[in-house]
């Protein structure tokens, strides 16, 4: 039989493991809904017929447009297409008021990080999915999770706390960038990625 002391010890152990692995991750991140829902699937599928680069383009000066500005949305959605509630918000709150949509950017890196889509896509020929996974075929936008301490998006750390057995797109910490650079024999000097 287990001694009561050992039992209490194991109970404590179990308690903190539960807290640490299940409660803590939940409490650490603050969840925010996107200002409106958006379906990549609809836009890229038969209905929309768009390709990724129709909205997310590398411009001639080498800068990446990132999330497109409202102008891009308004070029099709100048008036409501369909009757969904989200469509109504898009047109009434943003397009007609000419207000930029305050999207919450999952892949947002801190301001001291420099990243060039042009060199990764054009020169290194990486696929979008290498870092962004299947985001491009998602049907809805998941809540944005913001780290309460650092303020970073959860996507920087990745979906799991342990960071074990992750896909290439799950997490974008400095380690992840460095490891990929190492694998591809690309320099890992500070100024390569910092500004």
């Amino acid at each position: 039989m287990l001694k009561p002391g050992l039992l209490r010890f194991l109970a404590g152990l179990f308690f903190s493991l539960v807290i640490g692995w299940y409660v803590f991750p939940y409490a650490l991140y603050e969840k925010f809904e996107q200002p409106i829902q958006f379906s990549h699937k609809v836009h890229t599928g038969e209905t929309g017929g768009l390709s990724c680069t129709d909205c997310h383009e590398i411009k001639s000066d080498g800068r990446f447009s990132g999330i497109p500005a409202l102008e891009k949305c308004a070029s099709c959605h100048s008036s409501a297409i369909g009757t969904s509630s989200q469509e109504k918000i898009l047109v009434d709150e943003y397009v007609s008021k000419n207000r930029e949509i305050p999207w919450l950017i999952y892949a947002k890196q801190p301001q001291n990080v420099y990243f060039s889509h042009a060199s990764h896509v054009k020169l290194a020929a990486l696929e979008c999915t290498e870092c962004h996974g299947s985001h491009g075929s998602s049907d809805s936008l998941r809540p944005f999770q913001r780290n309460r301490i650092s303020g970073y998006s959860r996507d920087i750390w990745g979906s799991t706390m342990s960071r074990i057995n992750r896909a290439s797109w799950d997490g974008a910490k400095m380690d992840d960038c460095e490891n990929c650079h190492d694998r591809r024999h690309v320099a890992n000097t500070c100024l390569k990625c910092h500004k």
Binding site: S60, D61, G62, R63, S116, A118, S119, K195
Partner: peptide, 21 residues
């Protein structure tokens, strides 16, 4: 001073967009 390294990064990105290294 870092010789305006941000400008070097911008110039490299522009070159990359044109496929130059």
């Amino acid at each position: 001073c870092n010789f305006c390294h941000g400008r070097l990064q911008a110039a490299r990105a522009k070159a990359a967009a044109e496929g130059r290294r």
